[in-house]
Design a binder for these strands. Structure first.
Lengths: 154, 154
DNA sequence: TCGATTTACATGCATTTGCATCTATCAGTT
DNA sequence: AACTGATAGATGCAAATGCATGTAAATCGA
């Protein structure tokens, strides 16, 4: 019987323990991030939408594209964007090439708020991650998580 | 101006991109996991509580200890455990050494449900993670996320 | 081209969540 | 012991979330 500290014997166990560790790390970091002052006026999911829009080259994203980045149901995202629109942080318009679709983009206010919170947020992240891992380790973690994400089915 | 694909120049940028990638991977994997049949009758957070209790050597955990593992507010966890108790999956008792505290443990039903869902869950995880990363990469990802989590302040 | 199926998003409704606050207990000070 | 502040957990209440479903537009098949 293997000791509890032995790195997983079977492939299945190894995969499970890897995911478990990734998930716990995410929970631990996220808990600290969201308790910071950066998210006093905007929920993490809301910031995430603004952030995703800020990274989009064209500025416009479909609702279903946004939904790939956020861990929310379709209906919840729909209403989240509705709230952001009411607050004047995003604008919506019908997709020109698809009568069912909706395009979303940041307003000037939304872009400014994203940048302001983003600066604080990045600072908070660096204060947590940089002391924990060397630069080389961070690069490796970045590579592995990116590979994991892009290798998932669909 | 650095190309977008260049691995972050500054330490702050590197840390931010590392976290971003870790977070996106977590979202992508979690979305696939929670859509599976394993979580038809139990929310992920609820399973997480059962799982954490199943790993605890003594069987009993304080509510505030549970709260470290789950990304939920104190009040939400309090009510989540209340619901689990109503469903007969956990039992509570006042902490013997601290009149304010509450201890929680799995009931037999809870332990059985955890094992049953756990088996499915582990299978789902392995089907996602194993094809994406080699065993060596998984071990390295496990090591890095564990180091990150355990190196966080407090 | 017409009917059937699928896709994109919105909405009604019950459940879950978080914030603020409350109570009770504990720990430290005098 | 009495007082002060901190900590554990519960609860009222408003807001957010997800499920099931609805509507409309696109796609597919005959």
């Amino acid at each position: 019987m293997p000791a509890r500290t032995t790195p997983a014997a079977s492939p299945v166990r190894l995969a499970a323990e890897t995911w478990e560790s990734l998930f716990r790390a995410q929970v631990a970091v996220m808990r600290r991030l969201q308790s910071g002052p950066a998210f006093k006026n905007l929920a993490v999911n809301e910031y995430d939408v603004l952030f995703t829009l800020s990274r989009c080259p064209s500025g416009w994203l479909r609702l279903n594209e946004l939904n790939d980045n956020v861990l929310l149901s379709q209906s919840s995202l729909s209403r989240l964007v509705e709230r952001l629109e009411k607050r004047g942080l995003v604008a919506r318009m019908p997709a020109p090439d698809d009568g069912r679709g909706v395009l979303v983009k940041l307003t000037d206010d939304g872009a400014e708020l994203q940048k302001q919170i983003g600066r604080e947020h990045v600072r908070d992240i660096a204060e947590l991650v940089a002391p924990a891992l060397t630069a080389a380790e961070q690069r490796e973690l970045l590579r592995l998580t990116e590979k994991l994400r892009t290798s998932l089915p669909r």
